[in-house]
């Protein structure tokens, strides 16, 4: 289902928000370049190799990391594989229906995926067990738990924090009863992340461009643009969504704003503490 039109916003609510924007402010009093409160819980999923729960305002995404083993891609025989998957849990919003991931969930997964792939986040050569034959397949599985706008930035932080907590064992080939198995050897080691590619999303409402849209803002927005910025201030992925348009000036301004906002988010990943402790 289309997240942006399945809930009807009344004219009153829309006019009120536009009026606020014309005065330089938003529904919850934030500035145009201000994020809502971010809370992180790292490692709550006890059977995952790595996990995190992240809230931006009342939006919450859970991420768990699991590994399997398998053959590498033919064009990268000495690299492990990392894939992202996203599911919108129906209890996240009265607008969500049950069913397989729709295009919004798929888009979310692919955007997170691209941000990870084109950064130095994980050294994929360390994920090799037997070059050309056996590598680690890391799954970054995202569950959208509470929908209140901007799942993209929330998911990106959740994936990063989950990968940061990930411990995987060294796997060695062993003969067990005549069959070959991969067996863990020694204690699991930290995967270690070397980059902090964070996604920063802007919504466009009329001529106003605001970061971290809340639910109502998302519903009245014409378009949005997400930039993924790595630790060196480079853009590692871009995604535009929605049927509105951006001028190049708007896009460049947003990119510069994203680059300026990134360090604060990256700092949160570097120094996460357990802000949420009830799980």
């Amino acid at each position: 289902m289309d997240l942006s039109i399945s809930k009807k916003i009344s004219t009153i609510e829309k006019d009120y928000m536009l009026d606020l924007l014309s005065r330089g402010t938003r529904l919850d009093g934030r500035g145009f370049l201000e994020y809502r409160e971010i809370k992180i819980d790292a490692g709550p999923m006890l059977k995952a190799e790595g996990s995190a729960r992240v809230c931006i305002g009342d939006t919450q995404v859970c991420c768990g990391i699991k590994y399997e083993t398998g053959t590498p891609f033919p064009d990268t025989p000495n690299e492990g594989v990392i894939t992202a998957m996203a599911e919108f849990v129906p209890f996240a919003s009265p607008m969500f229906e049950s069913g397989p991931p729709d295009e919004n969930a798929i888009e979310l997964a692919r955007v997170v995926d691209r941000g990870i792939r084109h950064s130095d986040l994980v050294d994929r050569t360390r994920l090799v067990i037997k070059p050309g034959e056996e590598v680690f397949l890391l799954f970054v599985d995202l569950y959208y738990m509470m929908h209140n706008g901007n799942p993209w930035d929330t998911a990106s932080l959740a994936a990063l924090c989950a990968l940061k907590t990930t411990m995987i064992p060294a796997l060695k080939e062993k003969d067990v009863n005549g069959k070959k198995f991969l067996v863990p050897e020694g204690e699991p080691q930290a995967l270690g992340i070397q980059d902090y590619p964070v996604t920063i999303t802007f919504a466009k409402i009329g001529d106003y461009i605001i970061v971290d849209p809340g639910l109502m803002e998302e519903l009245i927005s014409d378009a949005r643009i997400s930039y993924c910025i790595n630790k060196n201030g480079l853009i590692t992925s871009i995604q535009k969504n929605g049927s509105g348009t951006f001028t190049t000036e708007e896009l460049l301004k947003a990119a510069r704003n994203a680059r300026d906002l990134a360090p604060a988010l990256q700092q949160r990943v570097k120094n996460y503490t357990r802000d949420l402790t009830n799980m």
């Binding site: 006890l46 009342d58 849990v89 209890f91 996240a92 009265p94 009830n278």
Partner: peptide, 24 residues
């Protein structure tokens, strides 16, 4: 009441189980 949007919700931690139920 662990889920903001659901009409009703609850979380159970039972041994290592962690389960969230949300109702509309």
């Amino acid at each position: 009441g662990v889920l903001k949007n659901a009409d009703g919700s609850a979380m159970i931690c039972h041994g290592k189980n962690r389960i969230i139920a949300g109702a509309y």
